[in-house]
Design a protein around this nucleic acid. Structure first.
Lengths: 299, 299
DNA sequence: CTGATGTGGTGCGTTTTTCGCACCGCTCCG
DNA sequence: CGGAGCGGTGCGAAAAACGCACCACATCAG
């Protein structure tokens, strides 16, 4: 959109931290960019950047302005998307920030299903966990976020919360895999454990559950990658912990058993958007599809 | 703001219904304006106006675009206002849509009080009753609305609802003025009545109260002006009906007695804004002041 | 029917704005 | 102290916007 070139320019400068660097990215000279900014500041009646010896940085007024710009660009995208929808063909882009567990099966399946019906819609999926996902929503870098047990922010609106019980995961030939139904947590801990690192929701729930017990979590292996943990359970006879949505639909070499609800309350998977924002058509419809799938899986 | 000239131009054309008329208002030739629109439509990939023999009219896509523009301009105004507030001086503009009852005493007093503290803030007060006030909010022609018993719209957010009992109003020498405390409705109707016309909230409440009774409202005088009704009560010995907020604080020639709550439930005066909108600083602070005054008056 | 009026759209020369080059003053850092 | 990196400025060139004259078309009064 031509009428918001100045907006994008200022955004680029704010991100790059220097007019010259931003000018290079935008393929213009620093002169032109500098003058645009000066003109805008003159019009606004107040500076937007504070000039430092090594570049520029947004001042408080600039923070307000940049936030307005991001919201404006995102809203224009929504308008374009709705207009395309008006013309019959649904097009647009859906930017998703999500936790690791959504990456292997859930999102690929649903995005593929959606794109089968609307090939003109494109997607971007970014791994952004918990608070970082919510920051992405606020900065308009993501339209929707799917996060497990997030730190709750005031600016985020929860569209759906799906219970996800923590599962004990192990190889099919693991002794624990022989049992049926829920398994007690203390029983799992009798074998070596492969656990996620501290900042993750699953680990958080485990630590919280064990805090009131005498048993301690002494992981043999720790990783920030759930994919690694799944694969490691195939390589050594360990027990690891994951939520169902990140596990293969059909169990093959891997077996998952729910942890007894007495030991560990189910965590919640949140589907979120920025509070007060109207999503573009494509994002809104895709969100509907996800919400339907999540609430059906629940029942 | 220079970067939204095209926006304002399209808005002007939409309002004027013709490119040439809008061009005249904007003090440019129709050629320039026409080309701006064509360029914008080309960029958008879809027309915004449908061309009629006698001018142009927004098509559905245009409705979306114009709504986006209005929201954007209003939000920019909020940003400017917040930046001014950052610099210490509060400036900006507050556009109010309100019912008649607010015009004579309530709004003048509070606007004057606010401007005493912040002389750089300007105000506009438009008489917009009920549904028209709400339309003004949606069209961003008003920041806040003060309406009595409005038709409720989904896009409007109620900030406060202040009970306003309907009062019987008459001259000080009217027989009914001799009594003390609440007066029964049927007692009022024993004298000639000067009533508001149908579309107004007070009249609506009266009609609703009398619908279940055998007594009928037979007004001797009907008017759409509450100011006229007040003045008429001084000229003839009639009873008229108004809400307290529209009556002089100190009673002189005019006496008001509340209608007994058994006959007539108090109406509600609503303080509203557009749902999901963040008001400019000045409007937000002024709204706070109004809300405080209204809830104090209540207690 | 017919001319007058009003509409949106277009070709073209002119004016205004924007851009890019060269250069300045400044701060930081080796 | 000198080089590198930064934001800011004067000035001529390029580009965009503008205004004029004009067209095709629809409407409406006479």
């Amino acid at each position: 959109m031509r009428h918001q070139t100045t907006l994008r320019a200022i955004d680029a400068v704010a991100r790059a931290g220097s007019i010259r660097k931003a000018a290079e990215q935008l393929a213009v000279t620093h002169t032109a960019l500098n003058r645009r900014i000066l003109a805008f500041e003159a019009e606004l009646g107040a500076p937007v950047f504070e000039r430092l010896p090594r570049g520029v940085r947004l001042n408080p007024a600039g923070e307000l302005v940049i936030h307005h710009f991001r919201a404006q660009v995102a809203d224009m995208e929504r308008v374009r998307s709705q207009i395309a929808d008006l013309a019959g063909e649904r097009r647009g882009h859906v930017a998703i920030a999500c936790s690791q567990a959504l990456l292997p099966f859930f999102l690929p399946r649903h995005i593929a299903a959606y794109r089968a019906g609307h090939p003109a819609v494109t997607f971007s999926v970014e791994l952004r966990d918990r608070d970082v996902a919510e920051q992405a929503l606020v900065a308009h870098e993501a339209d929707i976020a799917l996060v497990f047990e997030p730190v709750r922010l005031a600016e985020v609106q929860v569209l759906l919360a799906a219970p996800q019980p923590v599962m004990a995961v192990m190889a099919a030939d693991h002794p624990l895999a022989a049992g049926r139904g829920p398994v007690r947590l203390r029983e799992c801990l009798r074998w070596p454990v492969a656990a996620p690192t501290i900042p993750y929701g699953v680990r958080h729930l485990l630590d919280a559950a064990l805090a009131r017990s005498s048993v301690r979590l002494r992981p043999a292996v720790v990783s920030s990658s759930f994919e690694f943990l799944r694969c490691y359970a195939l390589a050594e006879q360990v027990v690891t912990f994951q939520i169902p949505i990140g596990l293969p639909p059909e169990r093959g070499e891997l077996v998952a058993r729910a942890i007894d609800a007495r030991d560990l309350a189910p965590g919640l998977l949140y589907l979120c958007q920025l509070r007060g924002r109207t999503l573009p058509v494509a994002a809104a419809k895709f969100t509907d599809q996800l919400a339907r799938a999540l609430s059906e899986a629940e029942s």
